[in-house]
Design a protein around this nucleic acid. Structure first.
Lengths: 128, 128
DNA sequence: CCCACTGATTTAAAAAGTCAAGCGGTGTAA
DNA sequence: TTACACCGCTTGACTTTTTAAATCAGTGGG
């Protein structure tokens, strides 16, 4: 039969109810999210600027991710009205977003220690 | 004016050489990977057992992720030969994998601090 | 005027993930 | 003996997500 969740009740995930870790993982594992956060930790950026910094994410996906992260209060969008109608959108990390620094740092540390070149490639491995 | 480029900072995306952080993010953002690691930090597990602990990942994807993580030496697969031919596969974190504890911990901390229920987006559940 | 830049949106197609079923095997209970 | 629940997967169809590419509206420089 169902080799998956034989379900004496809901799945383990649902069973957990509201679990901050589970949810946080759910947010951070969305494609490009960690790249976006990492780029913004380096300083606020405009849309295309961010796209270039992230490297490989297309504008449609980027728009979507930015909207999601904004609803989660991880980033905030500001529209500069510097020159009449030219509106440059600037994306910044909120305090909550800035606290993801520790996560990025942990990943950075781990990566340097355990992913020395030679391994199989993954996402967006462009002209590295 | 151009407020961008060519900052040779950490997030110079387009022409980065081998970048461990970028690569590490690429690995960890694959769907279910962080969940898998988190489950295994709790102790080694068999295939179905792991599927249940992770909660919601189907067997096809799980197989794929486990293979990938094995090639990256994050987990290792052992085949128990306990009863004659019954071969139970057991997945364990390698030392490298165990060091992802710090990443999970960072995510955990962040999640508890900034994802207290109420937000939209992922699975709507309650009670932790 | 022409072209490059800004921040997007739209499209169709490709990639990724999911679902349900099933396979060979074991062990347990009727 | 039959039956059925578990084990670790694999397969093929289906759905969702991500993608490249084109496009749009506006600005500024040459």
């Amino acid at each position: 039969m169902n080799t998956e969740l034989p379900s004496p009740g809901p799945s383990a995930a649902a069973e957990r109810g509201f679990c901050p870790v589970y949810r946080a993982i759910g947010v951070l594992q969305e494609k490009w999210v960690l790249h976006i956060v990492r780029s913004l930790l380096d300083g606020e950026k405009g849309f295309n600027e961010l796209a270039r910094a992230v490297g490989g994410c297309n504008s449609a996906t980027l728009t979507q991710r930015l909207e999601h992260l904004e609803t989660l209060s991880v980033i905030s969008k500001r529209t500069e009205d510097t020159h009449g109608k030219l509106a440059r959108s600037v994306y910044t990390l909120t305090p909550a977003g800035r606290e993801l620094q520790s996560v990025i740092t942990a990943i950075d540390t781990w990566g340097r220690a355990h992913l020395r070149e030679g391994q199989v490639s993954v996402v967006g491995a462009q002209g590295c």
